[in-house]
Design a protein around this nucleic acid. Structure first.
Lengths: 209, 209
DNA sequence: ATCTTACCTTCCTATGTTGACATGTCGCTA
DNA sequence: TAGCGACATGTCAACATAGGAAGGTAAGAT
């Protein structure tokens, strides 16, 4: 039940309405723990029923603000410290890789290259995000920055892996080499984007001691 | 509906029963796309109803083998090439990071250190897996290797990030430095484990061009 | 000969998740 | 002042996921 705790966590920053929380989910939590409107409102009512949050104020258009209670904070802390995080994840993009042998090698390479592009776009988006919040008057909190850093490293890793994999598929199938990533339509090379892997044959992951 | 396609994908390797598929999910697909028994059997029936697989044989103990049909293969290819992979993921371990400010810095560091340990264990498990399959008579298929490489890079990244984050939390809160990872109980340093980040202040992710 | 351990499927309940639909309010502006 | 867009909540049906109970069969070990 992570949704519940995500909402409790958001409410520690101050009272908010379902609508407010929804915005946060859409904007900043979307790639970490997506939630829909129906989930948020329903969970808010359950949370209130369980005494973990309480209605704090009523606003203009039927707006209802909720605040986290002491019980709610205790529950959040308990979750953070005592409950084991779930270890299994679902990676649809990776699942597909297992079955890429059903396609022609060139199609497989196309798929991997698309993954690389997508990862690079995500990476660029996060870099922008970092800039925009750094310029605000108060710097992102420590933990916000740590989470952002995770995103940067993850997207960089994805990009490098997909590039490596695409090249491997190509070279093992005698496909013509691609012109080392067609220059982006913008013109000058974007700085801050993770560079492609230098060599394609030696995976750098399981490093020697 | 990725479960459906995962099952189709597995059936391209040859006919199998629900039980067989279940084993594959438990053993090799568990960290990519977990599935339960109730899901697998139910989906198999739906798949058969939709003509994407067909009952191929009846075995000893009520065992029913299914084989993928032409329609099924076409559907799998369609999914691989035409359907956009889902871009949003749920990372519970990362979600928690957003709310770590609710804890004492030392507790937050403990959490991050546990993440680092878990990532290292996962990494070690994958290295073992790679050894065990490399020693088998036929090498893992190209795409199996590519997926495995993803896992190795992912766990290495997680480990490095968590180490970095734990140190950052400590240093920004004046916590005593830990003795650079207590020596593992085994004795000699394990080779193959990803090394800790050299310096703790300069995140290497958003590399300059 | 019996016992245990896999093998193998079906059914059930509870919970989580999605997407759509329904409903209404307030503030701005053409 | 009419209309539009943002604000704001609620409900519903369908599907996905988790976990377990129940039931039975075959093979191998003691």
């Amino acid at each position: 039940m992570s949704l519940r705790h995500a909402m409790l966590g958001l409410l520690t920053a101050g009272p908010a309405s379902g609508y407010d929380l929804l915005k946060v989910f859409e904007i900043s939590l979307n790639h970490v723990w997506p939630a829909t409107q129906s989930q948020v409102y329903a969970e808010l009512n359950r949370l209130a029923g369980a005494g973990l949050v309480k209605a704090a104020a009523e606003g203009p258009r039927g707006r209802k603000e909720y605040a986290i209670t002491e019980t709610g904070i205790a529950e959040l802390r308990h979750w953070l410290t005592e409950v084991e995080p779930q270890r299994t994840h679902r990676f649809e993009a990776l699942l597909r890789v297992f079955f890429l042998s059903e396609l022609e090698p060139e199609q497989a390479r196309t798929y991997l290259e698309r993954q690389a592009t997508a990862a690079e776009e995500d990476h660029a988006g996060l870099l922008e995000l970092r800039e925009s919040v750094s310029q605000g008057d108060d710097p992102l909190s420590l933990y916000g920055n740590i989470a952002l850093e995770w995103g940067l490293r993850f997207t960089a890793m994805q990009r490098e892996w997909a590039d490596w994999a695409a090249e491997r598929v190509a070279s093992l199938n005698g496909l013509p080499a691609h012109p080392t990533a067609a220059a982006p339509p913008g013109g000058s090379p974007p700085s801050g984007a993770p560079p492609a892997d230098p060599q394609a044959d030696a995976p750098p992951a399981g490093r020697p001691a």
